[in-house]
Simulated scan of single mutants.
Amino acid sequence: MIIRSQRKYRKTIVYFLSKYQPEQVWEFLIHPKYIEEFTKDPCFYNKIESDFKIEKGAYWVEVHTGEDCSGDIVKCQIVQSDINKRLRTVRYQAGIKNSSTYELNKLDQGTLISEEQKFSISFRDFKGINIVSWIMMITGLLTRFSFKPDEDLYWFKKMENAIFQNINKV
């Protein structure tokens, strides 16, 4: 369940409470092979190398197929990985740097998960049209239109269901 969410001009934070422990949640929350599967109406697909590991320096590629970003190829790189505790990634798209941090805090009744998304201006692969993205980010419109708690809740429920099924197939 989502227990709290915040939207600021260039940052969003969502807190989930999972009934499972961090070691049960970790791979389902973090591994990119689940991102597309758990996403409501995905407008992308992930390319993941067969030897991919959740460790600093590893990356996967999102290939975007949606109307607004068709053809965008986005490299998502892991910049910090503390197993069952914290993961930080960075990605660049449309003149925006998106830094994501996932933290898992063990509780008696499960795990408190926080997901923080920070947006900043990037000159990587700059195109003139990226100025529109910058204006959206600076005015807070980017987080307003990209932050959808109902889709986060859908994703979270799919993740919880996958964990449940994984536990019960043993």
Rank of each mutant, 00 (worst) to 15 (best):
S5R: 03
Q6D: 14
Q6C: 11
R7G: 08
K8I: 13
Y9S: 11
R10E: 12
T12A: 08
V14D: 02
F16H: 06
F16Y: 11
L17E: 14
S18M: 00
S18R: 01
S18P: 01
Y20L: 04
Y20G: 00
P22T: 05
P22E: 04
E23R: 06
E23V: 10
Q24S: 08
Q24N: 06
V25F: 01
W26I: 02
W26C: 02
F28Q: 00
L29H: 03
I30K: 03
I30L: 00
H31R: 01
P32T: 03
P32C: 01
K33V: 11
K33H: 05
K33M: 15
Y34N: 05
Y34I: 01
Y34C: 05
Y34P: 12
Y34W: 09
I35H: 09
I35D: 09
E36S: 07
E36N: 11
E36A: 08
E37A: 13
F38W: 09
F38D: 05
F38Q: 02
K40L: 13
P42R: 01
P42T: 04
C43K: 10
F44P: 03
F44Q: 00
K47N: 08
I48Y: 02
I48V: 06
F52G: 02
F52H: 05
K53P: 03
I54A: 03
E55D: 06
E55S: 00
G57W: 00
A58K: 03
A58V: 07
Y59L: 07
V61D: 08
V61P: 01
V61S: 04
V61G: 00
E62V: 10
E62L: 12
V63H: 12
V63R: 06
V63N: 10
G66R: 01
G66S: 01
E67M: 15
D68G: 12
D72E: 14
D72W: 10
K75D: 09
Q77D: 12
Q77V: 15
Q77S: 13
Q77R: 12
I78D: 03
I78P: 02
I78Y: 05
I78V: 04
V79L: 10
Q80E: 14
S81A: 06
D82K: 13
D82T: 10
D82A: 13
N84F: 15
K85P: 13
L87C: 06
R88M: 13
R88C: 15
R88H: 14
R88V: 15
R88D: 14
T89N: 03
Y92E: 15
Q93M: 13
A94I: 14
A94E: 10
G95N: 05
I96V: 00
K97D: 07
N98R: 07
S99A: 12
S99F: 15
S100I: 14
E103W: 07
L104Q: 03
L104D: 02
N105L: 11
N105I: 11
K106D: 11
L107I: 10
L107Q: 05
D108A: 14
D108P: 10
D108G: 14
